[in-house]
């Protein structure tokens, strides 16, 4: 009892600007095993959406888990999710729990 149950939530970020506008740190085999949001750029899609916060850890992108992926691979997955024309949004599964 008293232990916080790690909760995650799904955030849908519409591609409302030409950039996503987040900086991420972390990935497999580093001190930060899952990518964490360290910056949100004003005027980017993430800032416009208003639901992503600095410090949140990204568990999944469009349903694809980032667990066990190196930093560059995780970054590439997010970049491709933003570039693809198939969807006009990106779904992030995030948690405050680090």
């Amino acid at each position: 009892p008293g232990l916080l149950e790690p909760t995650s939530c799904l955030v849908r970020v519409p591609k409302s600007a030409s950039t996503l506008g987040i900086a991420i740190e972390g990935g497999a085999n580093t001190r930060q095993p899952l990518p964490r949001i360290v910056t949100i750029q004003r005027g980017g899609s993430a800032h416009n959406c208003g639901q992503l916060k600095v410090g949140q850890v990204i568990l999944e992108v469009n349903g694809v888990s980032l667990r066990g992926r190196e930093h560059r691979e995780a970054a590439r997955l997010i970049a491709e999710a933003f570039k693809t024309k198939e969807k006009d949004y990106i779904d992030f599964l995030v948690t405050e729990f680090n």
Partner: peptide
């Protein structure tokens, strides 16, 4: 003595 596993810091990527 506690064996400390030191992992490297990660790089930061702006997306």
């Amino acid at each position: 003595r506690e064996k400390r596993l030191t992992l490297p810091p990660s790089e930061i990527t702006l997306l």
